[in-house]
Design a protein around this nucleic acid. Structure first.
Lengths: 213, 213, 213, 213
DNA sequence: AATGAATGAGAGTTCATTCAT
DNA sequence: TATGAATGAACTCTCATTCAT
């Protein structure tokens, strides 16, 4: 039956530039690895999602491990990129403004399927590439955290934010959003708590702890 | 491998009572599944850890899926059991007492390897047994949470705790500890933040939000 | 059609003792490797010839290389064993007696399919296991050759054999038989020269060179 | 491998005349097939040695089998060509002269890597092209042998050579050199016997058998 | 209950070959 | 003529599972 969807799915060999195809493969790999985990994902799954046969994948990557590593390297660079601009608020910002800007970035991130898949991958398979993880943590995560903490300290000094337990280890401020994310990953549905409610309470908690009295 | 005699091992068939052996198998399965994930774990790994050969496992469980389900059912029942008694504080308790009792249970839990393994399993493989997860969530997690929230509400009414954003969704109070746990799971080491520091700040934050002013 | 030969070839799983099965596998491997060479032989070929499925082979050997090595080790030990007793002729032997005993052993060997297969394997694949080959050559071949040469020297001293170029490097005396073997291996048929003629001339040449004048 | 630029190589597509490139490919094929055997040799190996990529090979040959056949046809024609002129000695030659001329040609041949590779190929893969082999054997080998034997017979008649077992089947006279060759092929080194010693003894044996007494 | 040989269903990877450029 | 992306057909090896003991 010649329906619109390619019937025999044999679409005659499409040739793409390496960069394009590699991109497709990495995206496919993120989706597949992130959903099923490393071992349960077949090269063929990735290939199909990237629009070629499994053999074609080997023209671009040396093997399953290489795909995995390339994917992680690639994905880890992208994460936090979205949040980098968060703190560029001018001096006139109030604590509430800052909290809202912060939560915008954070909740966008935890709702992004790309981030979710990467996050699950990290929890599940990080032991597979310990060096890569360590490097990312040291060079990206910690670096980001220092910048953020410095900024918070500066705000406290200026009196924009109240000095509180939270400002002493500000990275903990993501915790409620991550709790929601983990819960969602386990239940595979939003149902645990409505995200809105979590964010609302989260906002109130942050203001409670950060707003100068 | 064959063609070369294995020097160690080979303990000559030990026969145990079914309950005992099943217990061993389930514990082994938790450790193995929790470390490597479902697909990457081989029956043989579990068997070896449980002290028999892979064929022996089939005398106790129908197959890999059956082991997994039995293990989860079993492990999920145990979790929270340790924390159930936390709130049995009499009326004379102060907010600080309550917080400390709470944190004792919580941090003991997140440091327990059994819990860690189970937690990773939930994040990684929960889609494998959605019914089981849903049932556990509804019957155990939510039930526990209601009881807890009721208790908090009662404390607030009595003035033992201050009404604050956190008391309106008290389950968020575990968030910092879970953030630490997730971080540790990803980095596969404690190094991210020292647990003590996290707990200290966590305590200060809770007191800040719960203690009557 | 239930003919005598197993129709569906599914003979219900025969269980054999490891030694027996390993023997079967090694024999099968010799035949297959010796005919097609290492790379062109599939584990499945060997398995079928040994009466099990390819997976079953892995219960006995770690892999293709392991089979190959085990096979060579095994086969190399057997070769020459047949010839070892050749020189146990008493002092009353004439040169003709010695030559005939010698040729009996030699021509039996070069006609033995087991030897032929091994020989082809050595020519084709010896670079795959250089250590093994070197060890075999030093410990078996050279050792045998020294014994043989000593014996020849002794015969010459006693006047049983004539001192001639051949007695100075007696191992060359196999050359015509090996030439026939190589020719047969290339042509895959006896047709090159009739073996009998070669042997006859070979005998005459040896006598010509060894018999005291 | 992809995802990392290869530093050396990559000479930007050199276009050669078909005959030239075909020659390169055949030579490359001889070296590769002769070293590893047919199945273990990859088109890519041959291509690389011939200075192009594997796809380029298909512009000159229909496939792996075609290369193999072309190579053998080509190489078999070349062999013996070197030895054809050996017997053009005039009537004044002595037996020693003839033997030396004969051995010059023979030992040059068995030391030629081209011949060695071809020889191994014949031993290993001759069943792949039985017709070709049969034809070569009948048209080239046997023909040569007849000429040679006729010449020997003539020499014997003239009294230049002694009638002996060897002159009745003169083709056996190559045997010691081939034994050395086979030994070298198996051990992949000259070490078995020094070539000089073999040749010396070989010479003495031939003279012993051919020189008129 | 426990073992170890044996099996069937893959999975990753390689390779001869083809297609589009 | 030459290239490199893409393909299909193997092939090695793994693993959950079964069978006979």
């Amino acid at each position: 039956m010649p329906t619109s969807a390619s019937p025999a799915s044999r679409r005659k060999r499409v040739r793409l530039k390496p960069e394009v195809r590699s991109r497709l493969i990495l995206d496919a790999a993120r989706a597949e690895f992130g959903t099923r985990g490393f071992t349960a994902t077949r090269i063929e799954d990735i290939a199909a999602r990237a629009g070629l046969t499994k053999t074609g994948v080997y023209a671009h990557f040396a093997g399953k491990d290489a795909i995995f590593e390339a994917l992680l390297t690639d994905a880890l660079q992208q994460v936090n990129a979205g949040r980098a601009a968060i703190w560029r608020l001018d001096g006139s910002a109030t604590a509430a403004d800052m909290v809202d800007a912060y939560l915008d970035g954070l909740y966008q991130m935890v709702q992004d399927p790309v981030f979710t898949e990467l996050f699950r991958l990290l929890v599940t398979e990080s032991q597979r590439v310990p060096e890569l993880i360590r490097h990312w943590h040291a060079q990206v995560v910690l670096r980001y955290r220092f910048v953020e903490q410095d900024l918070i300290n500066e705000c406290v000094r200026r009196g924009l934010l109240r000095d509180s337990p939270l400002t002493r280890l500000f990275s903990l401020s993501v915790a409620p959003a991550f709790l929601w994310l983990v819960s969602k990953m386990i239940l595979r549905q939003d149902a645990e708590y409505p995200l809105d409610q979590v964010r609302q309470i989260h906002r109130a908690m942050l203001l409670d702890q950060l707003q100068p009295r």
